[in-house]
Design a binder for these strands. Structure first.
Lengths: 348, 348
DNA sequence: TTGTAGGCGTTATCAT
DNA sequence: ATGATAACGCCTACAA
């Protein structure tokens, strides 16, 4: 009448299985956990049969309580709706799932209170580790203060936290982008940065100046603009620059959203990209190659960031100490927005 | 020397707090859970002080085990990297966090095995409910079979599962989009659909035919194309149609990605949008208004989908039975791709 | 080769 | 107004 055992509240426990199999719960546990090779075949078989018939699955709450490890990883993200974080999330979840781990995620909007709340919630849930992304914008003292130094944490992106970190050489990446623009014969290269207090901005801004210096171009303060690295903010800043009558023939934005906003402002003023102004962004969002003209950008292996973070956490959690920081390569994706005849890619 | 209590493995428990406060652990638990208003002020105070000093936070594993509720919600998504799901995820997480819940998410790529795996993992973790999104593509029998009928599940989008469902009237939405194209004077309206077996496709395709009928346009089989509703698939299908020399002056795609792919193919063939062909998509991804020309689309309150799903689950989980299905309004966002002088919006 | 008993941290029941 | 105790489901010494 009811062949498939229902998955109601009253789910079977080790005890149920033990009774059904006619053994003790110890035996069930050991068979299921692969301990003790020394078991009668018939015993094992009876246990497995009972498990199948009852559709038994261990209660991970109980397991977690007992073993104080939950095979769960917390992912702290500013905003899952921001394209930059999709691939991180995807990489993390894929890898976690493949390793038998689960991912809990929280959005912080870079709000300190929310960051702390997330940290607390995750700690309460006894996650085995936490991936902390997208900061380097707030001062992150509060994070360090809330976490024990021995916590299993990995940061992604520019941070100053005492944990293994994953990312790219932001400074060199931006410098390479500037070099790319210079190679196209651009000499008046402006930059749309973030806010001066952001660690991320500081790194990339240093790269911008490096790039100019190496290209033999003098840095001009009036061509270095600050934004929030959002679409609207990029548009605004560009608008300002145009109406101010500033003279430039190229733009490097520290973020694709800002670059897209800038392109929109340029279009509205009838300024042609790349003829009049070449544009290159940063992060290579999936949108970027869809706009007209396709936006050049600096690509990072973001999926790998998430995957690597999980691997580091799992390794440490399982006793293998691999907990090192990692630097990934970046790649300039030259498209029509910065190169008359686009298409080539330069990796580092 | 060490003012901030460290959060090492040896975290304080109720017992620790009890000792520190000079009361029993029962008292601690009751004070903390707001039971028993009948407590000496001094007792309460001592407990709260101890909690603060020790930085005590309950172990949610133990709580979950005891109360068999985890304040955790599972979010099953085909692919978090697909723009359609960002706002769902965001809406779900925001709402969950505000209600004191946590979200676990898994990507399934619409693979049956992965869907089942997710379901099992979430059940093992004793989540209080599951949000199941983006199906109506697979036959979802396997999902229903794996879940107890009393499970706290909410589906988002076209499904045939015996659970409360959230979405829009897909059929009416597409019909409205066809009406919009007809209003622009378009008579040869083609459609880029999904696969015939997809529930989602069936609904929207019915809407396409409804729309044609109401506009007094005869349905022509050769203008109804099937795709995977991806960028590349949309591009391919469009390519095919063009080289086949088919005659059409408008396109409705059942998904923005497909529409964007189609626009790319049109551009490559020098066909002007909207002059030669008007295009409208579906889902109104955030990308869509960034391309040139901006893509018209049907917008759904996707953030609300996620939020509402969480609210339904939480309500049911906490005993209030609100578990009803919900239909949200859609809105035609007419932009330059379908309207010479774009800008107006028609909501329903 | 297998079973018994205790405890992970919490809350609920029953006393006092 | 507060405490002792048991139980949630599991794993793991320690015994046999």
């Amino acid at each position: 009448m009811c062949p498939t055992p229902s998955r109601e509240a009253g789910r079977p426990t080790v005890k149920t299985v033990a009774e059904q199999a006619g053994v003790s719960s110890t035996t069930v546990s050991r068979v299921l956990n692969g301990k003790a090779d020394s078991f009668t075949e018939s015993t094992k078989q009876r246990v497995f049969d009972a498990v199948r018939e009852l559709d038994y699955r261990p209660n991970s709450l109980a397991v977690g309580l007992r073993k104080s490890t939950t095979r769960t990883i917390g992912l702290v993200i500013p905003d899952i709706a921001n394209a930059y974080f999709h691939q991180i999330a995807r990489g993390a979840e894929d890898t976690a799932m493949a390793l038998g781990y689960t991912v809990i995620f929280c959005n912080t909007d870079r709000l300190v209170e929310k960051e702390l709340l997330c940290l607390d919630v995750l700690t309460d849930k006894r996650v085995d580790g936490i991936i902390f992304t997208g900061a380097g914008i707030n001062n992150d003292r509060h994070v360090a203060d809330r976490l024990s130094a021995s916590a299993n944490v990995v940061t992604i992106g520019a941070h100053r936290l005492p944990f293994p970190s994953i990312g790219v050489d932001d400074r060199a990446a931006i410098a390479a982008a500037v070099a790319h623009l210079a190679e196209q014969g651009r000499q008046k290269i402006a930059c749309i940065g973030g806010q001066a207090s952001w660690l991320l901005h500081q790194e990339r801004f240093a790269g911008y100046r490096d790039g100019l210096r190496k290209a033999g171009i003098r840095f001009r303060r009036e061509l270095a603009w600050n934004s929030d690295l959002t679409l609207s903010s990029g548009q605004e800043v560009m608008e300002q620059a145009i109406v101010s009558g500033l003279d430039f023939d190229a733009i490097i934005a520290f973020d694709d959203y800002a670059a897209l906003g800038a392109m929109r402002a340029l279009r509205q003023h009838g300024i042609k990209v790349p003829t009049d102004v070449a544009v290159i962004g940063c992060d290579d969002l999936s949108i970027s190659e869809l706009v007209e003209p396709p936006l050049s950008s600096i690509a990072f292996p973001v999926y790998e960031f998430g995957a690597a973070a999980v691997r580091i956490i799992v390794a440490k959690s399982e006793g293998k100490h691999s907990g090192e920081s990692m630097q990934f390569p970046y790649e300039i994706r030259a498209r029509a927005s910065s190169a008359p005849s686009a298409g080539h890619s330069a990796a580092v």
